[in-house]
């Protein structure tokens, strides 16, 4: 078996969750790598949409920003940003939204705004961007984040985007009809919401990771599903496609591959 890093495992596990007929709203960074890996492996016809207005984009290299020229040049069409948010996102045409953030809680609520008090923050983060409406308008949400006590927290400093609120039917009570966060992929495991309470629980552990590590890297009393699987390790094909994508990207951005 080939050696691989926990970041590669995370990206590949996230890519596997996407289907060929998905229409996916892609965030920059880890989600972008996962979505394009899916397109380059098992989901060649997936529609990737970036909030800069590019629809059906097929970049050769990963963009550094949400609006790199590569996205526009390889897109089926590029629309204005108001149209993107009104017709395409709010219009309910996106099946999967990918989100990350600085903090996430047990119900998949995410903070990407501030650490500490909003008016007098310890750390001012970039902010939510499209996340508040991505979280409520896409059919479902996948989250990709490295797992650690400072990011998987018991209580968020600020709720930038809605997950399952306080659990149970919180979304319904707020008039939100979409499914919300349905999977969190980390460098250690995969979590899914418990069907009733909507609290995220571990359903699959990546090869080499342990329950103790996961408990140690989670700021709440993390639960494990009755049946916990071991994540399938990356295949040679998946690893080669991901590494080739990363090498092309590094070369294009003027770095050593």
């Amino acid at each position: 078996m080939m050696d691989y890093t926990s970041t590669e495992m995370m990206t590949i596990a996230a890519a596997r969750a996407l289907a060929n007929d998905d229409v996916c709203f892609v965030g920059i960074g880890m989600p972008s790598a996962a979505c394009n890996l899916a397109r380059l492996t098992h989901a060649p016809d997936i529609t990737l949409i970036y909030e800069s207005g590019t629809i059906g984009t097929r970049p050769e290299v990963l963009p550094l920003s949400i609006g790199d020229g590569e996205l526009c040049e390889t897109a089926l069409t590029t629309v204005a940003v108001p149209e993107m948010f009104r017709y395409w996102l709010q219009g309910g045409r996106i099946t999967v939204g990918f989100l990350g953030g600085a903090e996430i809680d047990r119900y998949g609520n995410i903070n990407s705004t501030v650490i500490g008090d909003y008016d007098n923050p310890k750390v001012r983060l970039p902010g939510g961007g499209g996340a508040p409406e991505i979280a409520t308008s896409c059919g479902q949400i996948f989250v990709v984040m490295k797992q650690g006590k400072r990011s998987f927290v018991d209580k968020l400093s600020f709720r930038t985007s809605l997950g399952h609120g306080e659990g149970h039917n919180s979304r319904e009570k707020l008039g939100v009809t979409t499914k919300g966060p349905n999977m969190i992929v980390t460098d250690l495991c995969i979590m899914r919401p418990e069907p009733e309470t909507k609290e995220f629980q571990v359903v699959s552990i990546h090869p080499g990771a342990t329950r103790e590590e996961i408990i140690e890297a989670t700021g709440w009393d993390v639960q494990f599903a009755d049946k916990v699987e071991e994540t399938l390790p990356p295949s040679a094909h998946e690893l080669e496609a991901l590494r080739a994508l990363n090498a092309r990207t590094a070369a294009a951005h003027g770095e050593q591959a």
Binding site: E51, V81, P82, M84, F85, R86, L89, Q90, N109, T113, Y118, G128, G129, G130, A131, P132, E133, A135, T136, S137, F158, R159, T160, S161, L162, G165, S170, R171, L174, G175, V176
Partner: peptide
């Protein structure tokens, strides 16, 4: 704001409207 709010608010500005209306900010602290 959120992106959706700003994009809608620019469009409302161009359209000469006093405000923008959209489905947004549900469950969000902003």
């Amino acid at each position: 704001h959120s992106h959706a709010a700003m994009a809608n608010a620019y469009e409302a500005g161009a359209a000469g409207l006093p405000c923008a209306i959209f489905r947004g900010y549900r469950g969000a602290d902003l």
